[in-house]
């Protein structure tokens, strides 16, 4: 099964479970969780079921397209369901079956992995799902987002698309994975992988990046004061990506990371709080639309 078919299969599966199918969000980010479709929507009482593919940038993982296991940018298939359905583990295992993975032929395990993203003030409990020893999915019950308690709790399922594909297609090299007939990952992403790696490790301008971080941070604060959550959050994402670029170049020590992470966290907390307040002002509209459904569940 090529990657395109995998994505179509997952989209169909989760669409049948009532998820809104969305597209990637257009600001750089390190993980699907950071998309506002997850980070912001996990906040507050409104129900939210969504699935989308998120290209995720990890500057530190860039290897000039030479390492068979590493990518500057990989893809995550992200599912959020709020409140978490009682049969979510079964729904997930069914999605693996749809991908042609028969649990009877493999060793599938749920191994504790409590996910934390300190720079966004997020914490969740759950597992990494192992397929014959390979971590293919992060499975998380959000407990806190942007420093706010989650009520109700969302469940987040994040499939590592390339990981899963390398297993399904039995390929050792990520660049040889078939995206669709006649197109490999290398065909599509080879050049950007090389260029972004070179940029990240060699040609990026540290002074400029430090300056940008400060500017983005200030702008995020300023827009929040205006009550403009989404523009503010875009700048939080930019801060986070800029930090990742600095970090990848080794410009920030282990000790100093703490300080930068605290700055990102403060921003994220503020955005989360503002988002909640803005939704409250609007009267939590999705809650009203879906009122019937939620009553049935309760």
């Amino acid at each position: 099964m090529n990657i395109q078919d995998m994505i179509l299969t997952l989209q169909k599966h989760w669409s049948e479970q009532g998820c809104i199918l969305m597209n990637a969000y257009d600001v750089e980010k390190g993980a699907g969780t950071m998309s506002p479709y997850t980070f912001l929507r996990a906040i507050g009482p409104e129900p939210w079921n969504v699935a989308y593919v998120e290209p995720s940038r990890r500057p530190a993982d860039g290897r000039y397209g030479e390492n068979p296991n590493r990518l500057y940018q990989h893809h995550q298939f992200q599912v959020i369901m709020k409140p978490s359905p009682d049969n979510i583990q079964e729904l997930y295992l069914d999605s693996l079956k749809a991908l042609g993975i028969d649990p009877l032929e493999h060793d599938i395990r749920f191994v504790e992995d409590n996910w934390e993203n300190p720079s966004l003030g997020c914490a969740g409990l759950g597992w990494e799902v192992w397929l014959d020893g390979m971590e293919i999915t992060q499975f998380t019950y959000f407990q806190q987002v942007g420093g706010l308690e989650c009520k109700p709790v969302s469940v987040e399922i994040t499939y590592g698309i390339e990981r899963l594909a390398s297993y399904i297609q039995e390929k050792e090299n990520v660049f040889e994975l078939e995206w669709t007939d006649g197109f490999t990952v290398r065909d599509i992403f080879g050049q950007p992988e090389y260029e972004h790696s070179k940029y990240t490790f060699e040609t990026s301008n540290l002074d400029m990046l430090f300056q940008l971080f400060t500017m983005y941070e200030a702008e995020a604060h300023r827009q929040m004061e205006e009550g403009l959550v989404h523009p503010a959050y875009d700048y939080v994402l930019k801060c986070s990506h800029t930090f990742n670029l600095l970090d990848a170049k080794g410009a920030i020590s282990v000790t100093e990371r703490t300080g930068y992470i605290a700055r990102c966290r403060n921003l994220a907390r503020k955005v989360a709080k503002t988002f909640y307040e803005e939704r409250e002002k609007l009267g939590f509209p999705i809650l009203k639309v879906k009122g019937e459904n939620t009553n049935e569940q309760a």
């Binding site: 409590n114 009520k151 109700p152 709790v153 309760a298």
Partner: peptide, 9 residues
């Protein structure tokens, strides 16, 4: 050691 909530519980 670590507790969690789920769904609406």
């Amino acid at each position: 050691g670590k507790n969690m909530r789920w769904a609406n519980q």
